[in-house]
């Protein structure tokens, strides 16, 4: 067993892959189902006296948009937590000694963990998007395919950025909980920074929710955010590897 297979085994045995997939698939299914049945539920639950309640027509794209909105919040949080748990190499001093005394190359120590976290997040998103698309087709009607794929790719890039940011914080903080917390705090800071008009187009968190927004706009509007997310993912990953390499066991 090498370090790549180890990470595959880690994802399964710790049930982290199950947590990711369950979260994204549930989010994907919940949107179209809620949109389809919500009027009936409200009518059934309302008082008999209420009359003339009018519900707007539900557009099929809203089924997918719901997933996009939920990925921005719940999905991103779950990805950060799973990535922090996987990348918390030094959270247990004794376990860390086992890996670090054998894997001298920091790339071999970190890259499989980084990659497995990103691949698992993107795979879970893909299954969630597939579930949302299927449920939307069945309950609400057809959605345009190309924007859906485009939105999925941009949303995937955002999740990769989240994983890289979490890796960076894990390389600064030994505690996995601390790394997850710092990653979430930095994402919130990006959301606040988004209020600055000149800064907003460059922020990678613009890609968060692409599944929702891309159907209504062109990917061309997002090239600045794509560029920053790509560069940010690479730079944060490289920094994380470098910082992990220079870290010593707790004294």
């Amino acid at each position: 067993m090498g370090s790549w297979r180890l990470e595959w085994v880690r994802m399964w045995r710790t049930k982290r892959i199950v947590a990711l997939v369950a979260t994204f698939v549930l989010l994907g299914l919940a949107g179209p189902i809620a949109l389809h049945y919500l009027p009936e539920l409200i009518k059934a639950g309302s008082n008999r006296g209420v009359q003339g309640l009018v519900f707007p027509n539900v557009q099929p794209v809203q089924g997918i948009a719901n997933l996009g909105n939920n990925v921005s919040s719940i999905g991103t949080l779950v990805v950060a937590i799973v990535a922090a748990a996987t990348l918390g190499v030094d959270s247990d001093r004794s376990v860390a000694a086992f890996y670090r005394s054998r894997l001298r190359n920091p790339v071999a120590l970190i890259l499989p963990r980084l990659t497995s976290s990103a691949v698992a997040a993107v795979a879970a998103l893909a299954l969630g998007a597939l579930a949302a698309w299927y449920e939307t087709e069945v309950l609400l009607g057809s959605v345009p395919f190309v924007p859906l794929v485009g939105g999925f790719l941009l949303e995937s890039l955002w999740l990769c950025f989240v994983v890289a940011a979490t890796a960076f914080f894990a390389s600064l903080l030994r505690s996995a909980a601390g790394a997850a917390g710092a990653a979430v705090a930095s994402i919130l800071a990006l959301a606040i920074a988004g209020a600055v008009p000149h800064l907003s187009p460059w922020l990678p968190n613009r890609l968060s929710g692409s599944l929702a927004s891309l159907i209504g706009q062109s990917a061309g509007d997002l090239w600045k955010a794509v560029l920053v997310a790509l560069l940010g993912t690479l730079v944060l990953s490289a920094l994380a590897i470098r910082l992990f390499a220079s870290r010593e066991p707790a004294a």
Partner: peptide
């Protein structure tokens, strides 16, 4: 090869997996 004091391993690995992994790494 280093044997730290108070050894710990990922708890979801079996003993044979730890040994195989040790060599594999």
């Amino acid at each position: 090869a280093y044997c730290p004091d108070a050894a710990e391993f990922d708890p979801w690995l079996t003993a044979s997996e730890v040994v195989t992994l040790s060599a594999g790494l």
